[in-house]
Design a protein around this nucleic acid. Structure first.
Lengths: 223, 223
DNA sequence: ATTGTAATTTATCATTTGATTAAATTTGTG
DNA sequence: CACAAATTTAATCAAATGATAAATTACAAT
């Protein structure tokens, strides 16, 4: 057919090219995708893959690292707690930036493939999301609702659940689009604005009701 | 090792046993799961599978039919529009019954595997969900909000999006549990009660605002 | 007990697939 | 122009994988 002329790249460039091709490839077909097919799409031969990665599994590990570890933005964590700005604004900014990283074909599909496979990258990643994003968000919501700080009364599972719910609503849009292949609203930014607004408006009353129901929970175990 | 004595079943029984085993098996490992491994788990030999299903693909088709087509309950559709009961009660009942069908390991994981594979079962199924559940729900919400009926003013995409959001929030719990392997609140029934309550309370104002923004949309194209 | 049918197993085929190796080739740079 | 290194070619291995045909055996009817 075509056989474009052989191109000689520096090891760094070639490795990068393989990793990026692997991300696209595994996102499309899953991790059972064959090394021969990946090589074909890259326009290289299969043995060359093994010059750069000792095994398919090591290439997959690299894909995880590239997509989930390297793309995490530590400044998200400080953004949430920056009380110089209104909480609504912080949350809208956070979710706009966060979705800019994760709302794409590769991120969403590889994450799902990994979850189904039982690779612990998903559990580890979501533990970080909970620790670094949801917990601070809940802490700020306490403040907003005029309730005792988390230093005084530790977070309740129900509070975290509210953050998960906000997150889940947004993330389900990505699932609809890149996994179920369904249309979603064009303007994600508007959508985020709305759901955050509704979260800010709806959560404090819920929290206060929650605290009214379980008032003495912590005091008992402390004495 | 053990080799339990060969057991001879009636074709109907054996077929049922294979289908149920296949549902469990493919839900766990995905459709790349091997026929030999499936046979081993069933305690039969691999060629026997091919006596009951001409190909692996036909067995998979059967799994789809068994899990998604056969488990659909037509009475859900009439439940939604039964105006003798308050809407909140109808929605809570609907989601309790619906989750009773879909909140399980097999349903959630096979659906996700199929979605990733691009099998059109997911698109077809969700089109039904939208037509038979979301559209009627939106119609009822119009009534609740004191807005023109859908006969007078056709549904807006934004209205459907609100139903998707409710659905997505609930479904994301299932994803967390059976795909990400994370803990979720024990009492799903309570959770449904809460989110439906919040939906009933929060949606009518949103709808009215939506209608105030786009008042003449349909009249223009009609004249 | 015997028998016959059909359920089930045994054995096997042809591909696919991750991985390896050795030698040949070609690219780009000094 | 030469040469070191990147890349391909080609061959191959062993295990796995969907599928098939022929041999075996369970069990109900007689």
């Amino acid at each position: 057919m075509k056989t474009r002329k052989r191109r000689r790249l520096s090891p760094e460039e070639r490795e990068r090219q393989i990793v990026e091709g692997a991300i696209r490839f595994f996102a499309e077909v899953g991790f059972e995708g064959q090394t021969r097919e990946l090589a074909k799409r890259l326009g290289i031969t299969q043995p060359l893959l093994y010059r750069y990665f000792p095994s398919k599994e090591s290439l997959i590990e690299r894909v995880y690292h590239e997509v989930y570890i390297k793309r995490w933005q530590p400044h998200w964590e400080s953004l949430i707690v920056d009380r110089r700005r209104p909480l609504q604004e912080r949350l809208v900014t956070l979710y706009r930036e966060y979705t800019q990283v994760i709302f794409n074909y590769e991120w969403v599909r590889i994450f799902m493939f990994a979850g189904l496979k039982g690779v612990n990258i998903t559990e580890r990643y979501l533990a970080i999301v909970q620790d670094k994003l949801f917990v601070p968000v809940c802490t700020e919501m306490r403040e907003l609702a005029g309730l005792p700080s988390t230093a005084e009364v530790p977070l309740l599972p129900e509070e975290l659940e509210l953050a998960w719910d906000l997150h889940g609503g947004v993330y389900y849009l990505a699932i609809r689009k890149w996994i179920y292949n369904l249309p979603i609203p064009e303007d994600l930014s508007d959508h985020i604005e709305r759901v955050v607004h509704s979260f800010i408006a709806g959560t404090p009353p819920t929290l206060r009701r929650l605290f009214a129901e379980k008032p003495l929970r912590q005091q008992h175990s402390a004495s």
